Simulated assay, not measured.
Amino acid sequence: MLNWNNIIGFINRGNPVPDKRIEKTDEEWAEQLTPEQFYVTRKHGTERSFSNDLCRSFDPGLYSCVCCGTLLFDASEKFESGTGWPSFTQPIKQNSIKYIKDISFGMIRVETQCNTCDAHLGHVFPDGPEPSGLRYCMNGEALVKKNHK
């Protein structure tokens, strides 16, 4: 189970190696994604809070990257954070997420990206529920939910 010390370690010593890499041009991504998905994932945008239906969905399922399909989160790790964005306590695999120090907007935060394709997902914070204490605050536009079969 990852905790905040692990996240800081990834920022300082390097991220886990992904299972595979996918790289495309902005033009190729733009052809594949909706304008909002492209803005969030490729231009590091943020959707409005409470604007995505995935905030209110707590049914079983798996969440993958909207860009490349890499599995990122299991609904069993999802919780209601009250922030207006889908929130999780752990990624599905340690190497599915990349962590980057983000000093934009006069704050120090930790940006999360898909470790396969570098899609901007959101940020992770050390104020989540125990036992991990992590809150992966994700943009719903960056995720696709797949229901369990």
Rank of each mutant, 00 (worst) to 15 (best):
Arg42Ile: 06
Thr70Tyr: 00
Val124Tyr: 05
Asp19Phe: 02
Asn15Leu: 08
Asp118Phe: 07
Asn52Thr: 04
Asp74Phe: 00
Ile103Ala: 06
Ser96Met: 05
His123Glu: 06
Pro129Arg: 10
Ala30Pro: 13
Leu134His: 06
Val66Tyr: 02
Asp127Gly: 10
Pro18Cys: 12
Lys145Asn: 14
Ala30Met: 13
Ser104Ala: 05
Thr34Val: 13
Lys98Met: 03
Ser49His: 05
Gln37Arg: 05
Ile108Ala: 02
Gly140Glu: 09
Leu62Met: 10
Ser76Thr: 08
Ser81Thr: 04
Lys149His: 15
Ser132Tyr: 12
Ser132Gly: 12
Trp85Ser: 09
Arg48Met: 06
Glu36Trp: 08
Thr116His: 02
Phe58Cys: 04
Lys43Val: 03
Pro126Glu: 11
Ile92Glu: 05
Ile108Phe: 00
Ile8Gly: 15
Val124Gly: 11
Phe125Cys: 10
Thr112His: 02
Pro91Thr: 04
Phe58Pro: 00
Gln94Trp: 01
Pro18Tyr: 07
Ala142Arg: 12
Trp4Tyr: 15
Gly82Ser: 04
Ser51Tyr: 09
Cys67Asp: 02
Ile7Ser: 11
Cys55Val: 11
Gly14Lys: 13
Leu2Thr: 10
Gly140Cys: 12
Glu28Ile: 09
Glu80Ile: 10
Asn115Trp: 01
Gly82Glu: 03
Lys20Asp: 10
Glu130Leu: 15
Thr46His: 09
Pro126Phe: 07
Gly14Cys: 12
Pro16Cys: 12
Asp74Trp: 00
Gly82Thr: 07
Cys67Ile: 03
Phe88Tyr: 05
Phe38Gly: 04
Gly122Ala: 12
Gln37Ala: 07
Pro35Lys: 10
Lys20Arg: 15
Gly9Met: 10
Asp74Ser: 02
Ile108Leu: 02
Arg56Ser: 11
Trp4Gln: 13
Glu28Tyr: 08
Lys146Glu: 15
Ala75Asp: 04
Gly69Met: 04
Lys98Thr: 00
Ile108Asp: 01
Gly106Cys: 02
Thr34Arg: 13
Cys137Phe: 09
Asn6Asp: 14
Arg135Val: 08
Asn3Ala: 13
Lys146Arg: 15
Met138Val: 12
Pro86Gly: 03
Phe79Ser: 01
Glu141Lys: 09
Ile103Arg: 09
Gly69Glu: 04
Cys68Ser: 01
Cys55Ser: 07
Ile7Trp: 10
Val124Cys: 09
His44Asn: 13
Ser64Trp: 00
Phe88Met: 01
Met107Tyr: 05
Asn139Thr: 13
Trp29Gly: 09
Gly69Lys: 05
Met138Arg: 09
Cys55Arg: 07
Pro86Gln: 02
Tyr39Ile: 14
Gly106Glu: 03
Asp53Gly: 11
Leu54Thr: 07
Gly133Met: 12
Leu71Asp: 04
Trp29Tyr: 14
Arg109Ala: 00
Asp74Asn: 03
His44Arg: 11
Lys149Gln: 15
Lys93Trp: 00
Gly106Tyr: 02
Lys145Gln: 14
Ala75Pro: 06
Phe73Tyr: 05
Asp53Glu: 14
Ala119Lys: 05
Cys67His: 01
Ile97Trp: 00
Asp118Glu: 07
Glu80Gly: 07
Ile8Pro: 13
Cys67Arg: 01
Gln32Pro: 15
Glu130Gln: 15
Thr46Arg: 04
Thr83Ile: 05
Glu23Asp: 09
Pro16Gln: 11
Thr34Tyr: 14
Phe125Ile: 10
